[in-house]
Design a protein around this nucleic acid. Structure first.
Lengths: 251, 251
DNA sequence: ACAAAAAGTTAGCTGCTCCTAATCCCTCTC
DNA sequence: GAGAGGGATTAGGAGCAGCTAACTTTTTGT
C-alpha cells in the first residue's frame, strides 16, 4: 500500500514516480526524433530490460496519463509525461557539467554517474548547481540543457559531419555518442565540442578532416555522431536526400 | 532472477545491496552505542517502516552474514556489515559538508538531501568531493567523518551540555539532532558547533548559558544533544552517575 | 512473582518490476 | 495478396520490501 515510490517531498511537477518509470519517460523523450519513434524493442535495449517488461510498463504509464499508446505502435509522451522527462534531462545534463567542471570527471565518465544521480536530486539541488555553474546551456557533449522552465531549444543548423561536402568548414558542437571507448577515441582525435574543422575530402567510408593543421580520416560511423555548425563560406553541405534524418539522437 | 539490486559496478566493498538494506545497516550502526542497542522497534521508527518489516529484513541480512542476530534480542553488525555501514556514513557526512559549503545549503537542510544521495554516489564521486573539500573531518553538525579507509575516530572527551556543572566552560562540538525545527532553534540561539559557552547556572529543567555576553536558558531536552569539549579550568563537570551514557546518538 | 504491557515474531498478502514462453499481429517480400 | 519473419503482446511467475493481524516472548510494575 505504501510502496516503492520515490519520496520526492515537494517538487513541482516530477510527482511520485518510481525511478524506473522516470527512466522510461526519459528514454521515450530522447527517442522522439528517432526515425521509428520510441518502439518497444528500442526502449527495451536502452533501458536494459526485455520487451515484455516494456509493454507492461507502457500500459501503466498510459493509465497514468503520461503516455499515449496504441498496441503495436510506437509510444508518445503526453504533455505531463514530457514535463517529467525534460526535468530529468535537465538534471542529467546539469549534473554532467557539474561533474566535468567541478569534480574533474573525464567527459566519458560523466554520463554513468549522472544517470544514477538524476533521479535523486531535489529541486533545490538542481537550482543551486545551476547557479554555481552560471546556468550552462550545454553539457560536456554539447547537448543542450533545458531551462528551469523546461524549455528545450532544439538544435537546428546542425549537420552530421558525415554529410558535409569537401571544403566545408565548421565547429563541432555536439557528440551524440555514449560508448566510453568511442568518446575516448573522439577525444584522442581532438574532436571535442568547440573544435574547428575543415573537410579536406570525402570517401564512401569516412571523411578526411583538417584539424589544427593535421589531417586524418574519420570513419562514417563516428562522423554521423559529430554534429557541426557550418561556417557559411565557399563550399556548402550536400543537399540532403529526402526523408528524415537518420542519426540516432543519443543521450 | 535479475532484480532490484543496486547497479554498483566496481565499488570496493559496498557490494550489491538494495538501498533498503543499506539503510538498515546504517541505522544499526548509528544505534550501536545507544542505551538498548539496535532494537526492532527503534529501527522501525528510524527507517520509517513497521516492526514486522524490520524482523523480516534482519533475517535476510543475517543470512547474508551482515548482521548477527538472536530472536527477541538487539541486532549487531558483523565486520562486513559494519564496513558497508561506515561507507554510507562517510558518504552521508561528506555530502553534508559539500551541500553546506559548496551549494550553500542551510545546516538544517543538508541531512535530507544527503540521505537520498548517499546510496547513489560512486567511489569516484566520494573521492573527488573529499578532495574538493580538503578532506574534512567533521560534517556541519560536528559529526566525525570516517576516513576513506573507513576508520572512524570515536568522540571521547565530549559531554552533553546538560551534564555540565555551573561555571564549566567549553566549546560546542556536535549537535546530535535531526529535526529541522530543533536545528533552526539551535542556530537562532547561536549554538552552532564551534561556539564557546559558559554554564551560568543549572536548573532541573535546563541550563542557563552565557554565550558572547548574553544569557539564556537551554531546556534539558536540547542540552542533551549539544556535545561540548570542556575547557579544563576552575570548575569541572558533575561526576557522571553510574551506567551507560543516555544520549540518543543521532545521525 | 505474576499479570499486564510492551516488544518481537510469524503468517499471509499486496504492489512493483522484472522474467520466460507462447501467441498474436503487422509488414515486407515475392 | 499470402505467407514468413520479426516485433509486440499476453499469461504466468519470481523476488523484493512493505503491510496487517494474530500470536509469542520479554520486560515491567505492583
Amino acid at each position: 500500500m505504501k510502496q516503492g515510490l520515490v519520496e520526492n517531498a515537494g517538487d513541482k511537477g516530477s510527482s511520485s514516480l518510481s525511478h524506473s518509470q522516470q527512466d522510461y519517460l526519459k528514454q521515450i523523450f530522447l527517442l522522439d526524433h528517432a526515425p521509428r519513434g520510441a518502439t518497444t524493442q528500442i526502449l527495451a535495449d536502452r533501458i536494459g530490460v526485455r520487451p515484455a517488461s516494456v509493454t507492461g510498463m507502457l500500459k501503466k504509464l498510459a493509465e497514468e496519463g503520461l503516455v499515449e499508446r496504441a498496441p503495436y505502435r510506437a509510444v508518445r509522451l503526453t504533455e505531463s509525461g514530457r514535463r517529467i522527462a525534460v526535468e530529468l534531462v535537465r538534471h542529467h545534463r546539469l549534473l554532467e557539467v557539474f561533474l566535468f567542471r567541478m569534480l574533474g570527471y573525464r567527459w566519458d565518465e560523466v554520463h554513468e554517474e549522472a544517470e544514477a544521480l538524476e533521479h535523486v536530486i531535489s529541486e533545490r539541488f538542481e537550482q543551486r548547481v545551476a547557479e554555481l555553474l552560471s546556468h550552462p546551456e550545454r553539457d560536456p557533449h554539447g547537448d543542450p540543457i533545458p531551462t528551469s522552465e523546461l524549455a528545450l531549444e532544439e538544435d537546428r543548423h546542425l549537420a552530421p559531419l558525415a554529410r558535409l561536402a569537401r571544403g566545408s568548414r565548421g565547429t563541432i558542437c555536439r557528440v551524440t555518442l555514449q560508448d566510453q571507448d568511442a568518446l575516448n577515441l573522439v577525444e584522442k582525435l581532438g574532436l571535442l565540442p568547440g573544435t574547428e574543422i575543415e573537410v579536406a575530402d570525402t570517401h564512401p567510408d569516412g571523411v578526411s578532416l583538417l584539424v589544427a593543421g593535421s589531417r586524418f580520416l574519420v570513419p562514417t560511423l563516428l562522423a554521423l555522431h559529430l554534429l557541426v555548425v557550418i561556417v557559411p563560406g565557399p563550399a556548402s553541405p550536400h543537399p540532403k536526400p529526402r526523408g528524415r534524418d537518420r542519426t540516432a539522437g543519443g543521450r
